[in-house]
Amino acid sequence: MVRLLSFFLLFYITLSASEFDKNCFDCHSKDFKFHIIINKYTLKYSSEQKIKEAMVDYLKSPSIEKSILPLEYIQKFGLKEKSPLDDKTLREMIDIYYEKFNLQSKIY
């Protein structure tokens, strides 16, 4: 039983990770300083809940006001397109992203 459960858990994680690679790293390639985004979000929104809410909100309907990037960057690269992911997947991806990159877990 434990084996079965462990197997399913491992399968789920692998599946999610690959989903994250597909949905996020496709564009944000690995050499891209992905952690900078969470740095900016942390500086602006502080708590996990507020950071995640802000990310979901921005990815679902991006706007200059909601963006955490400096204006020059937006002017140069333009606004990000609206995410094609459904709400549930989007939240799952953000959870994985937060888990991987959040600053608070890096403090010792």
Binding site: N39, Y45, S46, Q49, K106
Partner: peptide
């Protein structure tokens, strides 16, 4: 915060203790 690193050593002082909390008052 200006440094980019995988691990951050929280600043410690002999004279006092400290703690940081997020905006929802959760301990960091």
């Amino acid at each position: 915060n200006e440094n980019s690193s995988d691990r951050y050593k929280y600043p410690r002082f002999d004279e006092f203790e400290s703690a940081i909390y997020d905006i929802d008052k959760n301990l960091i």
